[in-house]
Write a protein that binds this DNA or RNA. Structure first.
Length: 712
DNA sequence: CCGGGTAACATTTTT
DNA sequence: TGTTACCCGG
């Protein structure tokens, strides 16, 4: 077998990693050093040299996207697509295991996955049922508590009773929550991992089977692994498996949700015979950018220590723009992009928090620059989609209370809150499911006849749909559901753009079902519903359209662009005020900055605003310490064009700077419609001259030739 | 059932 | 400041 095509394109450390004989391997892969390449080549290498069969390979990632990417890259490397190989996220693998061994895991065959939305509803209800004050125990934080515990691998029974009154409440919620999940046969994300781990521990035979099978286990993004994922992996590996983990301690940015960098730092202690390989040659960014990244991350302590280098030239210096407010910042970027011939697809604006995107949008729209915001709600999280999915869930399992509660009066069929309350209490007292409660209430006419009729119509509806689905395929079932349930009609009645998009989304769901049917050759409804909760539902519908990408630094991890604008580099914002006082928090912020810088291939532009209005009030923050951590020789400061002034609060008397608008920054003006305002900025010449004015209720850009502005 | 008014809220996010 | 969730009145 000729493996030169696998080996030849690699550099020395990459090759070492791909060909290692070591049982355990830690690959420290810096940003842009080719880690996915190492992982995929390694897998194909193992198979083609006969060291592993494809059945014996397990590769774990964090996101579905990464799993998909890995799969397709392996497929292109291999002469024939490998069979029986497991590639997936921790969650999807756990789900698969639990589906197969549902009995051993003490789950119903048709158990469903509870997404965070459903989870929150459930927690809310429990808090209410327990008569807990939801101001003292906000559902969100109870949810956070539960998930945190599960990420640590702790069930209610593992947690010692607490003296703290507040924690006692949380524990009660947790206890009740576990109970209800078990009763209704639903499993949340953390539970998937927890159960999968317990499956190993409680069923030695099952464990043994998988230990025998998976002799080669590979894990991507190892720095992001949490306690329960680690535990699961540790048990599966046992003594025999070969474990290769790939990660970068400098890119650990999910500590706040349970990821433990310690796992990567401790790897050589936890496993024996570890070969450590560092990938430090970077193939992505030019010199200045890389050196800046090294300098910044160099301020962190406790690193495993890597220093990226490149064969590439220094390239362009990093530009630094000092804006005087967030509008100036956004305007500068939009104008900077406007004249470029590069493709918009190769540009990104990265920010620390989502709230920053709006101003950017405004200015991009103004210059008609197409953009796409990442990290919105996932397709399957949209209201109308969730509703439709709940109908599907009801077909699978009538006792899915969460689903039923959501759709029993949707579209409206005259079952009011009072009736639902009665049903809920009835169900709880009798210890039966919502569905059973509904049937009995109808049967014994416990509610007024109008309500009973309505409830009965719901029961009939579900049964009717169910009886029609007999030999239909998945696509047709979905289509049937959205029509028969009247969801389409319901949203069609909604006026405005909203209703239209909702109807479109519902139709999109039918095509999603169709493609699930085709791609995975699977028409199992249950699988489809599970996949929906485990999959983000690919947000990137129109990737082909040219557009600038806007996203948070977190969601930028793993991506790269020719031209990156890293904005809002101000103390309090980045590093964020919630994290900066804690040393670990600050280090994580710095890693985030490192991630941001290393996203850029050729151009990086940093910016900060001297004044930023956030949540109503203006803040005057110092520029971020991260800027100062970059040596000067890599930075080129950009000064403003002559007609625009620097800082100066608008409330103060502005400097004597005139521009083509004839107005001064900070000047008070009056507008016939909007009333009194203050000039924030001016731009354009002659008939294009326009000013930005802050009025009492809004801030607007006005064309001077049209707006009848009066100086005060 | 809708719509308006208003109080509370506002890192980061995948599964 | 802008959004959103929730409450009350019509």
């Amino acid at each position: 077998m000729d493996i030169s095509r696998l080996i030849d394109p690699l550099n020395e450390p990459q090759r070492e990693a791909v060909c290692t004989d070591s049982q355990h391997t830690l690959v420290l892969a810096g940003a842009g050093s080719g880690k996915t390449r190492v992982l995929t080549h390694r897998i194909v290498y193992l198979i083609e040299t006969g060291q592993a069969s494809s059945f014996g390979v397990l590769a774990v990632t964090f996101t579905n996207k990464a799993a998909k990417e890995m799969r397709s890259r392996i497929d292109t490397l291999m002469e024939q697509p490998p069979r029986g190989m497991w590639v997936g996220t921790f969650h999807s693998l756990a789900h698969r295991l639990l589906k197969t061994h549902y009995k051993e895991a003490n789950l119903p065959e048709q158990f469903q996955v509870l997404d965070s939305d459903d989870q929150l509803r459930m927690v809310k209800r429990i808090i209410k049922d327990l008569n807990l004050d939801d101001t003292k125990w906000p559902p969100k934080s109870a949810q956070w508590f539960i998930n945190g515990k599960k990420d640590e691998g702790k069930r209610f029974k593992h947690i010692p009773a607490s003296n703290d009154f507040h924690e006692q409440g949380l524990l009660k919620v947790y206890e009740q929550y576990e109970l209800i999940c078990q009763q209704t046969g639903v499993v949340d994300f953390g539970e998937l991992l927890l159960r999968a781990h317990e499956l190993w521990l409680n069923n030695p035979k099952v464990l043994e089977h998988y230990q025998d099978r998976f002799r080669h286990i590979l894990v991507d993004e190892y720095q992001d692994i949490n306690s329960i994922q680690y535990a699961w992996l540790r048990v599966l590996c046992g003594e025999k498996a070969h474990l290769m983990v790939v990660g970068d301690d400098d890119q650990s940015i999910y500590g706040w949700r349970g990821a433990k960098v310690e796992n990567i730092l401790r790897y050589s202690e936890d496993f024996k015979n570890v070969a450590t390989i560092k990938l430090e040659q970077n193939y992505r960014s030019s010199g200045h950018i890389l050196k800046a990244a090294n300098a910044v991350i160099g301020n962190n302590s406790g690193r495993l220590g890597k220093e990226l280098w490149t064969d590439d030239e220094d390239g362009k210096q990093i530009r630094l723009y000092a804006a005087y407010n967030e509008h100036d910042e956004a305007r500068f970027i939009a104008e900077d992009m406007e004249g470029l011939l590069e493709s918009y697809n190769e540009m990104a604006i990265l920010y620390r928090s989502n709230a920053q995107s709006r101003v950017m949008e405004e200015h991009l729209i103004r210059l008609s620059i197409p953009y796409r915001i990442y990290g919105g709600h996932r397709f399957y999280d949209r209201l109308e989609i969730k509703n439709a999915m709940c109908y599907l869930r009801m077909l699978l399992n009538r006792h899915d209370d969460t689903a039923m509660e959501r759709i029993i009066n949707l579209p409206v069929r005259g079952i009011g809150n009072k009736s639902i309350d009665t049903m809920r209490i009835f169900a709880r007292d009798q210890n039966i499911s919502f569905w059973q409660a509904a049937s009995q209430i109808v049967e014994h006419k416990i509610l007024p006849s109008r309500a009973c009729n309505a409830i009965e119509s719901f029961i009939t509806l579900i049964n009717d749909i169910d009886s029609q689905t007999g030999d239909l395929n998945l696509t047709d079932v979905t289509d049937l559901v959205i029509k028969q349930s009247n969801l389409i009609a319901h949203h069609q009645k909604e006026k405005g753009e909203k209703g239209r998009t909702r109807v479109e989304n519902l139709k999109e769901l039918v095509s999603a079902a169709a493609s699930f049917n085709n791609e995975s050759d699977n028409s199992d409804l249950s699988e489809f519903v599970s996949q929906a909760s485990l999959d983000a539902g690919d947000n990137q519908a129109d990737t082909h359209e040219q557009a600038v990408s806007l996203m948070t630094l977190h969601s930028a991890k793993g991506l790269e662009f020719d031209r990156v604008y890293l904005v809002g580099l101000e103390e309090q914002l980045f590093p964020h005020k919630m994290s900066m006082d804690d040393p670990d928090g600050l280090q994580e912020e710095r890693r985030l900055c490192y991630v941001g810088i290393t996203r850029a291939r050729k151009h990086l532009c940093l910016s900060y605003a001297e004044s930023r209005s956030l949540y109503g009030s203006s803040q005057f923050n110092a520029s971020s310490r991260f800027i100062r951590e970059i040596p000067n020789e890599h930075i080129q400061e950009i000064r403003l064009k002559s007609q625009i002034t620097r800082p100066v609060m608008y409330t103060e008397t502005p400097k004597e700077i005139m521009n083509d608008s004839g107005f001064q920054l900070g000047q008070d003006v009056n507008h016939p419609v909007f009333g009194k305002g203050v000039i924030l900025s001016c731009e354009g010449i002659g008939s294009n001259a326009r000013v930005e004015v802050k009025f009492a209720k809004s801030t607007k850009w006005l064309m001077l030739q049209f707006a009848k502005l009066e100086a005060l």
